[in-house]
């Protein structure tokens, strides 16, 4: 399958944060949900993909092209939404359109006005008077009005009410009717991903823990519950992030089948949520998380 985004062995070091030998690919024609806690490097990776940051070393290519020689061509084909407002605030949407429209060869005025009507956005009001939801809708309108092949969104649903979050997912479903389109977005709200994400990319502390088909996660991972006396030095190695209490233990396994073979009926296996996986991975050491995935 074709990859739209390809990051190979990327290194980037900041004060107090490092991305080491990071590789990632985003599949064409699908929605990839990008999850991980705060400050684990999600925004850095999105910035690297958008060429807002340059890697210290390693390769990044989009649509099979690199930024060095094809920067404008690549950006023509990307629609972007950031978690904070990046539109000029002291002007109206009509004026903002005048600024953004000429930048894109494939700008579609009809499509733009369709979204403006759908979102009920005022064209003649200053953008600074917009609510957070309206700003987000305005950004989304600009991202969707030039027939972008790749839509990158950083936390698009944060701070939005549940009703609009649903509407947004419907719009994304509509976009995905075209198998040439790809969506890559980061989020904290993992329940949004159940409705739309084909692949889940999970990172922790600058490390790529996994990219899996969404349904594959519940095939591989499971929450294990059992009595504490089942745990010893050997069996503990089967888990990441064990939580003990006086009444038993709860842990996450990355190999459901193996756990079932080892423990049989002595433990209960449950479907994990993405939040469970994030939580236990954070609890467990990074060593376990990577060596078992």
């Amino acid at each position: 399958m074709e990859n739209v985004v390809e990051m190979r062995n990327v290194n980037k070091t900041f004060k107090g944060f490092a991305l080491k030998d990071f590789s990632l690919s985003v599949k064409k024609g699908f929605v990839t949900g990008f999850i991980g806690g705060n400050g684990v490097g999600k925004s850095t990776i999105i910035k690297l993909i958008m060429n807002l940051l340059q890697p210290d070393s390693g390769e990044i290519s989009l649509f099979g092209l690199n930024y060095k020689n094809h920067e404008k061509e690549i950006k023509q084909r990307i629609g972007f939404v950031f978690d904070n407002n990046v539109l000029y605030e002291n002007i109206t949407l009509a004026e903002m359109k005048k600024i953004i429209k000429p930048a894109y060869k494939n700008w579609d005025d009809t499509l733009f006005h369709q979204y403006i009507n759908l979102f009920e956005l005022p064209m003649k009001k200053q953008i600074k008077t917009f609510s957070k939801g309206m700003m987000m809708k305005a950004s989304l309108t600009f991202a969707l009005s030039h027939h972008a092949e790749l839509i990158i969104m950083d936390e698009p649903t944060s701070g939005l009410d549940p009703i609009f979050r649903r509407e947004l997912l419907d719009i994304l479903h509509d976009i995905m009717q075209d198998s040439e389109k790809t969506i890559f977005f980061s989020t904290h709200i993992t329940t949004d991903l159940d409705r739309i994400a084909d692949y889940i990319t999970f990172i922790h502390n600058g490390q790529h823990i996994f990219t899996k088909e969404h349904y594959k996660i519940e095939e591989d991972y499971a929450i294990v519950k059992g009595e504490t006396n089942l745990l010893d030095r050997d069996t503990e190695r089967e888990f990441i992030g064990i939580r003990r209490s006086n009444h038993g233990f709860e842990a996450l396994t990355t190999n459901k089948q193996r756990t079932q073979n080892i423990f049989g009926d002595t433990v209960i296996l449950e479907k994990p949520t993405l939040e469970d996986i994030m939580l236990y991975t954070k609890k467990g050491t990074d060593h376990y998380a990577t060596s078992h995935s």
């Binding site: 024609g29 699908f30 479903h173 995905m176 739309i196 084909d198 969404h214 349904y215």
Partner: peptide, 17 residues
Amino acid sequence: MRQLAKDLDISVITTKR
């Protein structure tokens, strides 16, 4: 596959599978 995914409000890869 894509239409069914939209109608059922689930991901495309699920209907694909």
